[in-house]
Design a protein around this nucleic acid. Structure first.
Length: 568
RNA sequence: GCCGCGUUGGUCAAUCGGUUAAGACGCCUCCCUUUCACGGAGGAAUGAGGGGUUCGAUUCCCCUACGCGGUACCA
């Protein structure tokens, strides 16, 4: 993985692999143009994991150099998304460190100096071509073989720039305030090679790269200049970004060489793309709409088009699951393990095992990850998020059901131990939340724990547990009527009497008693279990029927049996 | 067109020259459960094509095909 040595050719630029002696500082640098999408969050995640693992800093830098694309609220949205995902930056516009400002628009004065330095050294030049002239040029030189002519070492000879113009003419143009851009001057036929942490040595020939604009007519830098200057000024040690940036890497390498020296350049890693599930190509918001799954971290409505997009948060994903599934989209630790807590990812993650190829997003698998996390976490970890969902569905949870009993003595703890029954997870950080939370679960939380095995998404809880708090609006009589007999009516009448008398109302005792009664009545328990379930739940689903009865309590259980009996 | 990057079951993927080519999701069957799940046991399903190198290629090299990305005063 060492960079090719400079001796291969006189014009070859190779990048030395400097040691990781300097402090790890990484950055996520989004442009605030809309919602934060899956690929973006994954880039954040990899940055975050890398920083944490190496005791470094994770910086959020807002790349808002294109005023025409600026979208109000996008920055706040990004911040909130990161907060939700638990991936908060150490330094950001809202939380400045010693390297501010953290918005490029606020750094505008900084860039001109570096552009000037490049011009003075002969590595950049003024170009006075108007956008219209550029359009004309592209049309004029367009051929079947070359559909998009580039402003490069050949074509720049035909354009209006300080390389062609007489120095006096250039000066005059500048003094007259003629709009101009600064372009990098690329010498043809140079090999530019660098070592990508994921792809190994990547080589480009400058002949195929154009003279990119560095400074725009409005004085703002383009991404190319800004990223290099800011990464230097912010002392970024490792630069991770999407694969779509790979083709412009040679420009950035050259800029580093001209401006700051290759020995200061960060290590690069170009992350594989996240692809749409069907067909090919980058996953986009459109695919989510089309296929019915979220693509953004949180709900996002474009302030201009008013076009809404749903988020993973609102769809009912747990942050732990979201991070977990994102991490696995392009990385694995080689062991076959798939469920990782954030802390565990910090420990195990490394760039060497990141894939080169893009991964198609599989929503079914994403749901599976969420399901796993819902099962593994105690409901106290997400009951606060689930509660509003019940309310939104018109189901009121009594305040008494939300209070947690006082701290239990050790003897009471076994009531809810199976949460971490999976031995492979024992002792893992994810259990900490449970251990720290030494209060007994509220009734609401107990009920969530009772049904969580069948929930993939948080809103599933409403469907699965709603009947505990609200008597079913309809009872599926068709499920019991066909096989109903007077003997069964008798049985349930007797059952009510027994329930009224029973000393305790605990599942195991209820079940034992129920079966005794069934035997006495000479009816197979199975014949009676389903009717009881339908009476309590309203339909054929839910946890064990005696767990339901116990959770419902004596009065409500009897009330529901009576109600159904009256309907039969 | 040109440049760059990719390509192991439907999907995510392990393998770092020798394996019956792991595992997971999804799908199917069975067990558990007289509900739905969870859990358990099985099953179907894979190296883009062609050349090399090698005693031996999924693995290394080359070519082709295909896909993606870039080719903006957008990032």
């Amino acid at each position: 993985m060492s960079a090719p040595c400079g001796a291969i050719s006189a014009t070859r630029i190779s990048v030395p692999l400097h040691s990781m002696s300097k402090k790890v500082r990484v950055r996520f640098a989004p442009s605030p143009t809309g919602g934060l999408h899956l690929g973006g969050v994954r880039t954040v995640l990899y940055n975050y994991l890398f920083a944490r693992k190496h005791g470094g800093d994770f910086i959020l830098r807002i790349e808002d150099t294109d005023q025409s694309r600026y979208v109000a609220g996008a920055e706040e949205y990004i911040l909130e998304s990161l907060k939700w995902a638990g991936l908060e930056p150490d330094e950001s516009p809202e939380r400045p460190g010693n390297y501010g400002p953290y918005r490029q628009s606020e750094r505008k004065p900084i860039y001109a100096k570096y552009a000037q330095k490049l011009i003075d050294a002969g590595h950049a030049y003024y170009a006075f071509d108007t956008p219209e002239e550029l359009e004309v040029m592209r049309e004029k030189y367009k051929t079947g073989d070359n559909p998009s002519p580039q402003y490069n070492h050949t074509l720049r000879k035909k354009m209006r720039n300080s390389l062609q113009l007489d120095p006096a003419e250039t000066r005059a143009l500048l003094e007259a305030g003629t709009p101009y851009v600064v372009r990098i001057k690329l010498e043809p036929d140079q090999e530019v090679a660098f070592t990508d942490m994921i792809r190994g040595v990547v080589t480009f020939n400058t002949t195929s790269v154009d003279d990119k604009v560095l400074l725009k007519a409005d004085g703002m830098p383009t991404y190319h200049l800004a990223v290099v200057v800011d990464d230097f000024l912010m002392e970024i040690s490792h630069a991770f970004r999407g694969e779509e940036w790979l083709p412009s890497a040679p420009v950035h390498i050259l800029l580093w060489k001209y401006l700051f020296g290759l020995e200061h350049m960060p290590h690069w890693a170009h992350l594989p793309l996240i692809l749409k599930p069907d067909g090919n190509g980058k996953l986009s918001k459109r695919d989510g709409d089309r296929l019915g799954f979220p693509v953004f971290a949180m709900n996002w409505t474009d302030p201009r088009t008013k076009e809404p997009a749903t988020g993973f948060r609102e769809t009912g994903f747990l942050p732990a699951a979201f991070d977990n599934l994102l991490a696995m989209l392009g990385w694995n630790d080689g062991s076959g393990q798939e469920i990782f807590s954030l802390d565990e990812l910090v420990e195990k993650f490394n760039m060497d095992r990141v894939h080169k190829g893009g991964a198609k997003f599989d929503y079914e698998k994403a749901r599976w990850f969420n399901h796993e996390w819902i099962k593994r976490l105690p409901s106290s970890a997400y009951s606060d998020q689930v509660l509003p969902l019940f309310q939104a569905a018109g189901i009121t949870i009594p305040a008494a059901d939300l209070v947690q009993p006082p701290t239990p003595g050790p003897a009471l703890m076994p009531e809810f131990p199976p949460v971490f029954g999976d031995p492979t997870l024992d002792g893992q950080p994810m259990a900490i939340g449970f251990i720290e939370n030494d209060a007994l679960p509220s009734r609401f939380q107990k009920i969530l724990d009772l049904v969580k095995d069948r929930c993939h998404l948080l809103p599933d809880f409403v469907q699965q547990a709603g009947f505990f708090f609200q008597a079913p609006a309809t009872v599926d009589l068709d499920a019991i009527k066909p096989k109903w007999t007077p003997a069964k009516t008798q049985f349930f009448a007797e059952l009510i009497r027994q329930l009224e008398l029973s000393a305790t109302f605990e599942a195991a005792a209820l079940e034992a008693n129920f079966k005794e009664m069934a035997a006495a009545a000479a009816i197979k328990p199975g014949e009676l279990l389903m009717p009881l379930r339908v009476m309590l739940v309203g339909a054929k689903f839910g946890p064990h029927v005696f767990d339901i009865a116990a959770a419902l309590g004596r009065d409500e259980t009897i009330r529901r049996i009576r109600h159904t009996l009256s309907l039969l």
